[in-house]
């Protein structure tokens, strides 16, 4: 429970700072902190492989890409003029209201489901999660039941790669 509260607090605080921060460089780094907190939660959920994937792929690869682009476009001049948190006043209030409404709505949905007492809701905590930790089981499911989706994803990656190269190429 302590781990959960700590990780949850870090994740929410870091995500808030990502969204509200003025310097994109700091935003990227705080997002990595938030990812690390989520990885800790995944370990608590008996998903060590997911936690490691979160760090290797999300923090280690995708975020480096963001970092590269921020450095390339020279982050210092961001957020001038009509920039980000400088919005202030009404838009900010509207956004905050939107966020609270959305969070409340989602929380309400969660609570309602629990009150309705879905059978799986309480089943988990007592059950043993060690079977879920096995990378072997995970691989088995991934390469049998989801094999088509897996192959399609590889196609998606290739398309995205070609697309990114074409888009970012300097026209000569």
């Amino acid at each position: 429970m302590l781990l959960f509260l700590l990780a949850a607090a870090v994740a929410v605080a870091a995500s808030l700072a990502v969204v509200l921060g003025r310097n994109p460089m700091h935003s990227v780094l705080l997002l990595i902190v938030s990812f690390a907190a989520l990885a800790a939660l995944y370990i608590g959920l008996d998903a060590p492989f997911a936690a490691v994937v979160q760090i290797i792929i999300y923090a280690g690869a995708i975020m480096v890409l963001f970092l590269f682009v921020v450095m390339l476009l020279n982050a210092h001049r961001e957020d001038e003029g009509t920039g980000g948190a400088a919005l202030g006043g009404r838009p900010l209030a509207a956004g905050a209201a939107l966020a609270i409404v959305l969070a409340a709505e989602l929380a309400w949905a969660v609570l309602r489901t629990r009150r309705a007492g879905g059978s799986w809701m309480g089943a988990g905590p007592e059950s043993d999660g060690t079977a879920l930790q096995s990378v072997r089981t995970l691989g088995g499911v991934l390469y049998s039941e989801y094999s088509l989706a897996f192959e399609v994803t590889s196609l998606l990656i290739i398309v995205a790669m070609v697309g990114a190269v074409v888009l970012a190429r300097r026209e000569s």
């Binding site: 990595i32 492989f49 490691v52 280690g60």
Partner: peptide, 18 residues
């Protein structure tokens, strides 16, 4: 002793880039 030790090393290496 972690049962995904190899991947943990990999993860920490990818963090050290930062």
């Amino acid at each position: 002793d972690v049962n995904v030790a190899v991947l943990v090393i990999f993860a920490i290496t990818s963090i050290s880039v930062y």
